[in-house]
Amino acid sequence: MSIALQVTDLSKTFPVGKKLFGGARGSVKAVHPMTLSVETGETLGIVGESGCGKSTLARMLVGLLPPTTGTIEIEGAALDTADPAAFGKRIQYVFQDPISSLNPRKTIRQIMEAPLRLLHGMDRAAREERIREIFDSVNLRADFLDRYPHEFSGGQAQRIGIARALAAQARILILDEPVSALDVSVQAQVLNLLADLKREFGLTYLFISHDLAVVEAVSDRIAVLYFGSVVEEGRAEEIFAHPRHPYTKLLADSAPVVGRPLRDPETGQAELPNPLDPPPGCAFAKRCPYATEKCRATAPVLEQIGPDQRVACFHPLPAR
C-alpha cells in the first residue's frame, strides 16, 4: 500500500486581537502539530466537536490556508506553497454547504468548466465530453448544465459539488462535513454515491464530520480530534466500540442510540479550555474522570498502543 497523503507536524496558529501599536495581542493554536497519513484507496475519518480544528486542518490540506509549521506530501511529492491551483490537480475539496459553494450567478456548465480549462487546459470539445462522463457517474442529467445553482435541492447541489471536485481529476478528496446540511434520506444517497465513486475511480478520502455514526459507516480508519490535537486514532470498527481515550469514550457514550437509557455521561462542565490561555497539560484533563497531577502538568503525545491504534493519554482505558 502506498501513502496517498502524508502530513507531518502540521500546525496552524492564528494571531488574535490587535494592539494599538505593533503586533497581535495573543495567538490561538487552532491545530497543534499533527502527523497523519492516509493510504491510497483508504477513507480516513476525522471526527470532533466544534472548535476542535477539523475545518482548519481541511483548509490547510488543500492549500487554502498556509500552515504555520509542518509539511504536506501528496503521493510522495511535497507541496509547500500555499497555492490552491497547485493543490487543485492533486487534492480537491467538497464543501459543507453545497449551495453556497456554487456561485449563484454562474450556470452549472460554467462552474464545471473552470477546473477543466484552467487546471488541464482542455479545449471545448474535450471539456464537453469530460463533463458528460462526470455527470453520468454522479447520476446527474445533462440538462442541468444550463441551469443556475438556486434551482437545485441540497442533495443535487452537493452532487454538483462532488462533480466539480472530480473534474479536477484529483485522486484525493477532502470531504468537509459533506452531508451535514442534508436531510437524512438524502444524506444516505450522497454517502452511497461517494462510496461508488471511490470504487470506480480509486479515490482516497479524508472524511470530516461531527456525526460519529456517519463517520463510522464510511471510514476505514478514524482520528478523533480534541482541542486541535489527535487524541486517538484507530480502525473504524474498533475505535468507538472499544475506545482507549476517555474523550473517545465520552463521545461514544453521548451519541443517542435507540434503546440505550438516557443519562448524563459526564458531570460538571463540558466546556473547552480557553484557547487564548490553554492549560499546560492534557486539554481534556478538566473533564476527565481519570485525570491525575501528571495529566494536568504535561501534555501526552500520540503513542502506538495496539497494532492499529494510537492514543494520546497517560491513562488509557484498558483494552478489551
Partner: peptide, 14 residues
C-alpha cells in the same frame, strides 16, 4: 469568504 470563491481557487483561477 464564501465557499464558491475557495472552490474557484481550487479550480486554478488567478
Amino acid at each position: 469568504h464564501k465557499e464558491f470563491v475557495d472552490a474557484a481557487k481550487l479550480a486554478g483561477m488567478s
